[in-house]
Design a protein around this nucleic acid. Structure first.
Lengths: 201, 201, 201, 201
DNA sequence: CATGAATGAGGTTTCATTCAT
DNA sequence: AATGAATGAAACCTCATTCAT
């Protein structure tokens, strides 16, 4: 197996443990190795330390997610369709797995310091990712201006916050309001979409 | 020193380390003891384990913060004044300290699973706190309706999300947009306030 | 309360814990203090260390037992009556409590090294006790010669072993043969008595 | 080195420390590791806890001793030769080492409660060993009946006690009567043998 | 005298990392 | 390249003992 493939294999093992775990710091190298069906020592053929491995695994996941989002964004679709697809993507991520990672992404604003020790290790890739993220958000905004949904392109902070808030909407709902006190799927997506519109109008 | 006072003393030591620390799990009992100028063994006279101590410390901080917020909310002030004070409170918390705890509170929606292992130890007090938090939010909303800022009291989810989003606004700004690309203090508070208004109109 | 009385009070607490315990080394000073209804610090007003306390407690028990045995030995009774009373004394000790101590006494031959660390602390009193024990045994032998049960006083080793073996008889029976495969109370006392006779004839 | 061989290696280190030690509970894992010329952590690759290791070490020793005794018992030899060999085995054990263990075996009748905490960990193997011990004793008795030394096979308790007493004889002598007041080697073996004969006649 | 809060030496156990195979 | 046995630093927690009140 080529090196990069093997590393991805290990990433997946690490990520599944990160999601199962209550406490990332409690994950053991031996568990990751076992999950990946390789020997404990082999991990060190590919990564210089456990922290490096964890950091790279999260970076890997983040990249995959950004790519996934970007792929879902098609020029041929209307803005609302694209925006909705992005929100659906967030939701499906929450429903399925990688909740830890999701917190990491969407809440990086307030939560990233929880991982500062990781951040120092993933500083470069994390900054790169934040750039990608920002570019993707900007593509969204530009599209919304292009489609005439938003009259004029607002300042950076405003659109960054609008999209973050929109995502917060679906996340809060998913986590705390599922069931009786909340809305149905269609309604919450609509509400999140409207959040974007309202905040930038 | 009475027991409760001593415990609070230890809480403060723990909290200051939690805030200084990149990684809560790396904090050592001996460090907390040193910070509190007491012996290692003394910690165990007051707490049954390190985890218990950390969990109680965070609960203590959260309670203090909620109380602080509620105290800042005066019936004699206008809604906007009250709301602004609440946002200032969030900001001052971020600027000064307890960033970890802030993440804990404001992002509990998406981030709480990061603390699952703590939560299990502080389940009861945490639920109580979330109830307090919700009650405080509701007091805000009621005031805004009473003052005629909002025409009619919206559904639970809507106002909960509106306030969360408003707080997200100041947090994102504080963390990522300080300096050139952002706004000044007055502007960002105004923007956060408007977020609440917009989202509930 | 006079000092000696208080010490005896603490001895009794310690002894009851020694008997309840699987492992003498696991007994905590705080437990002894609690059992004696005194403060932890008070223990150190009477004893210089935990080991000292344990050692003295055992010595106290041993002395009490020897005295008890000697008191049971009356010149006016026949040898067999006296011997039987001694065996009953052993049995009652086993049935009631102080099994640990009993092991200590009767099995000091092979078991005492288990307590070497204690022995060093109780060396003097232990030697004194062994002397008392020996004197008591000798009184038994002399009586048996005097009463004509044994023709001639045998060498030290022989009578010491004969009595030890006799005691072993009731102990083994009590511990392992109670019930179906064993004898009734009368029979086993008789058997133990006969052991003495046989071994010295 | 295969796992079982390595464990035995660690057993031997532990046993030598048990014998040197005044107090089993004072033995440190690091000492056992040093004695075995391995790292402290390595011990935990083979045993789940210190108590487990101690318990298994004693079980190991007991098994070895029982096997040794049984091997020494040959059908082609006379009963007295066999019995004498068994007693010699006890004595050589006492002279050389494993005094703690010896107490454990021969005095298990009255002393086993001293090891209750160990027993709980080695319950199964200990029961198995006691069965082996009993079977060995019975083989001895049967041989004595077969050889006509004893007329008729006595009840279980009687022969069990007779052999125990016989062993007690050599143990007491070895521990307390070596030198002036005692007998020479030949005499004490003879005396112990006669104890068996007398008690079953 | 009596106390128990405070202490810290000391012991157990964990686990990331190494390295010989 | 892959392994996993071996390691020991590091951290938690216990508890005998002290000492100020």
């Amino acid at each position: 197996m080529p090196t990069e493939k093997k590393k991805e294999f290990i990433y997946e093992a690490a990520l599944s443990l990160i999601d199962e775990s209550d406490d990332v710091s409690k994950i053991k190298v031996v568990d990751i190795a076992e999950k990946a069906n390789i020997g404990k020592g082999t991990v060190y053929e590919y990564f210089s330390s456990k922290e490096q491995l964890i950091a790279e695994s999260i970076t890997y996941m983040l990249k995959k997610w950004i790519n996934h989002l970007e792929d879902s964004f098609g020029e041929e679709r209307s803005f609302k369709e694209n925006y909705t697809l992005m929100l659906e993507s967030v939701l499906s991520l929450m429903e399925k797995k990688h909740r830890t990672i999701l917190g990491f992404i969407s809440m990086s604003e307030s939560g990233s310091h929880l991982y500062k020790s990781l951040n120092s290790l993933m500083k470069d890739s994390f900054e790169e990712l934040q750039k990608s993220n920002l570019q993707f958000y900007e593509k969204i905004v530009d599209k919304s201006v292009e489609d005439g949904i938003i009259e004029e392109k607002p300042p950076l902070f405003d659109w960054y916050f609008a999209i973050s808030s929109s995502i917060l909407c679906v996340i809060i709902h998913e986590k705390h309001f599922e069931g009786d006190v909340g809305y149905n799927h269609q309604e919450i997506i609509e509400k999140a979409y409207n959040t974007y519109i309202k905040l930038l109008s």
